[in-house]
């Protein structure tokens, strides 16, 4: 049986729509189609998922989204306010960016499931960035409620992208119940503290068979490059761009950082060494008298 909202809405969230280009030029040296990100049944040339929260205005947000090259961007579901002018949805629609509703602000599985179902009805997409947090101070995920909600929503046909702790065990359980990606936090939302436990990210990324996406904590471009080097398939961020002094500039930086980190990850870095290893050959050196420097 078809879902009423899916029939009349032209949101890019429906599976039949091809990935949409934002029209911005690809980063130099990065061939978009050569290395697509696959989540669920969709492919994305961009590996940067953006949030829309924290931007000073819709105009600044739009410029930052274009500069980021993102093709998938989150929104929150809130009570309709008749006095609010302008809609983030019209910006995403204009840019051809797939909307990814989140369940931010939910503290229980029940709240999150209802919010996801309302988002599906409102936006015509069965994709959801699942957030179930434990408290306002840390905004850390509640793992019990999260897993419960994830299982319910997967069974209900949702493509579930859960915001989770950087816990390899929980990541595995979320994958086992059918989540389409795993989104561990580098550090608390909005903190800009980067990836506090890189080893856990490596452990999660090594084992996962679905994309692992850094979610929360990125402060600047190096955090993003590190995430990709650790094996993340993509990065999700909002505050690092929207609350930067120059959001558009930081968005461009993040776009390059994702590409640079991804390329470095695929290239295979050199092993770390304790001592130096000369890069110029030893063979063929001139035999000079070290006691008689020429410059005396």
């Amino acid at each position: 049986m078809s879902h009423p909202a899916l029939d009349h809405h032209h949101s890019p969230g429906t599976p039949s729509d091809p990935p949409v280009s934002t029209g911005a030029a690809p980063a130099p040296g990065f061939l978009p189609s050569a290395d697509p990100l696959t989540i669920g049944d969709r492919e994305f040339a961009s590996r940067l998922i953006m949030g829309t929260g924290g931007a000073p205005s819709l105009e600044i947000l739009e410029r930052a989204l274009i500069a980021s090259g993102t093709q998938l961007t989150t929104v929150a579901m809130r009570r309709l306010n008749p006095r609010v002018q302008g809609s983030v949805l019209s910006v995403l629609d204009r840019l051809g960016i797939q909307v990814l509703p989140n369940t931010a602000g939910c503290f229980t599985a029940g709240e999150a499931v209802l919010t996801a179902r309302l988002a599906r009805e409102a936006l015509g997409t069965a994709w959801v960035k699942l957030e179930v947090v434990a408290d306002e101070r840390t905004l850390l995920p509640d793992p019990i409620e999260l897993l419960d909600a994830a299982e319910t929503l997967v069974d209900d046909g949702f493509t579930v992208l859960p915001y989770t702790n950087d816990d390899p065990v929980l990541a595995q359980k979320l994958e086992d119940v059918g989540c389409a990606a795993i989104m561990p936090l580098g550090s608390p939302i909005g903190s800009g503290l980067g990836i506090r436990n890189p080893h856990n990210f490596q452990l999660i990324a090594e084992r996962a068979r679905v994309p692992v996406i850094l979610d929360a904590g990125a402060g600047t471009a190096s955090d993003v490059a590190l995430a990709m080097e650790l094996g993340c398939a993509a990065v999700m961020l909002a505050s690092a761009v929207t609350r930067a002094q120059e959001p558009e500039l930081m968005a461009e930086a993040m776009r390059y950082a994702v590409s640079a980190g991804r390329l470095a990850s695929r290239a295979g870095r050199i092993p770390r060494r304790h001592f130096a290893l000369a890069s110029s050959p030893d063979e063929g050196r001139a035999h000079l008298d070290p006691e008689r420097p020429a410059f005396e």
Binding site: G53, V75, T115, A238
Partner: peptide, 10 residues
């Protein structure tokens, strides 16, 4: 009755 829409977030 709750009436919701999408806003900037996440």
């Amino acid at each position: 009755v709750e009436v919701l829409t999408a806003v900037q977030g996440g």
